[in-house]
């Protein structure tokens, strides 16, 4: 199939040495000044050269919303599709052409409201896609209605009396759907964001990354209380695989478990009794506990919640094609003839 489409694979090529600039298009970026999307774009463009994948084998597919303009600004193949459906298009493309590296760019409304069903199933199937969900907890493009991740009671244009519905937690959705790589990062921590994007892109199987993204026009400061530079050290829990759960400027605080309840222990010197992060744990129990930890009761976990290996959908299909070919080499005429023919002369 590679040859059918004139594709060059990484093996055939000298691995390209590209820079951030190679991934910048000539399009004027149209997000509001100060929008968190800029930072995500910049980190993506910085990260992409590290993958050493030829530009032509990279595809960005998005839905609708502010974040979904992303593909126009990345100098690769790009598809700005329709609301919520990016995972479906990416699934078809990746199943047909497993050699491509496909990113899905979505938002909280696009990915969890109108496209919620597709998001579940793309993660369940474990298609090797890298899904980046920009969570700004608001509808930006339509100018400020509440989204499925908006906090209960939020006053917006479409909820002047406050919302009456509970929000979704994207990480818990990804866990429920069985995603094999699940992470969270924030637009304002550029180093952490780049590294998280890199790990997600490198993962074999579906990767789901929630990025807390500030919409400075319609939901400014949604994450400020724990993501701003000044407070971050005390309010975020940076997850590190194999390391005890610690936070604080001096990493002086820790997390222990009391039954199934996480507890913050302040100023604890010994690691004894602290929960040790294991992203590849056999069960999702730890990841579920971490996913429920939220501001203001707990430091907000960021980093990789889960990273496991599982059979990949498009590889299984390709393997079925291969083994079916070997078992019964395709003979179109035989197939046309079916089980019974007769001749008329």
């Amino acid at each position: 199939m590679a040859t059918t489409n004139g594709t060059t694979t990484n093996d055939e090529l000298e691995l390209p040495v590209l820079t951030r600039k190679d991934f910048v298009t000539d399009q004027e970026v149209r997000w509001c000044p100060g929008c968190g999307d800029y930072a995500i774009l910049a980190q993506m463009q910085r990260m992409l050269p590290r993958l050493r994948i030829p530009k032509e084998n990279l595809v960005f597919i998005s839905g609708i919303g502010c974040s979904s303009r992303f593909p126009y600004y990345v100098e690769t193949y790009g598809f700005h599709s329709i609301h919520g459906r990016a995972p479906t298009i990416a699934s078809g493309l990746k199943t047909a052409r497993p050699e491509l590296s496909v990113f899905v760019i979505t938002g909280d409304g696009d990915g969890l409201s109108i496209g919620g069903n597709h998001m579940l199933h793309v993660m369940r199937r474990n298609i090797d896609l890298t899904i980046i969900l920009f969570n700004n907890r608001i509808y930006g493009l339509t100018k400020g209605q509440f989204s499925p991740t908006s906090e209960m009671g939020k006053v917006t244009k479409s909820s002047p009396y406050g919302t009456t519905e509970r929000p979704l937690n994207p990480i818990r959705v990804a866990l429920a759907a069985g995603a094999t790589f699940i992470a969270r990062s924030i637009d304002r921590d550029t180093a952490h964001l780049e590294e998280t994007l890199y790990k997600a892109a490198k993962h074999k199987g579906v990767s789901f990354v929630e990025v807390y993204q500030n919409c400075n026009i319609f939901n400014d400061g949604a994450f400020a209380a724990f993501a701003d530079k000044g407070v971050r050290q005390d309010k975020l829990l940076y997850l590190e695989d194999g390391a005890p759960l610690r936070f604080g400027a001096e990493r002086q605080h820790g997390i222990t478990l009391d039954g199934f309840e996480p507890r913050v222990v302040e100023d604890v010197s010994s690691d004894d009794g602290l929960v040790v992060h294991d992203a590849a744990s056999r069960t999702q129990n730890l990841a579920n506990i971490l996913a429920e930890m939220d501001y203001p009761d707990y430091p907000v976990p960021v980093g990789v919640f889960r990273d496991i290996e599982a059979p990949i959908f498009e590889d299984l299909i390709a393997a079925q094609v291969e083994s079916a070919r070997q078992k019964s080499p395709p003979n179109f005429q035989d197939l046309l003839n079916g089980s019974e023919t007769w001749e008329v002369s």
Binding site: T4, N5, I61, F79, S81, R85, P87, T88, I89, A90, S91, G92, L93, K94, T95, A96, R97, L100, N117, H118, L120, H121
Partner: peptide
């Protein structure tokens, strides 16, 4: 696919892929 919409989307993705 998970629904009719996804089947349409997947076909578009495969078409986009040639």
């Amino acid at each position: 696919a998970e629904d009719e919409i996804a089947a349409m989307g997947a076909a578009i993705g495969a078409s986009y892929g040639g």
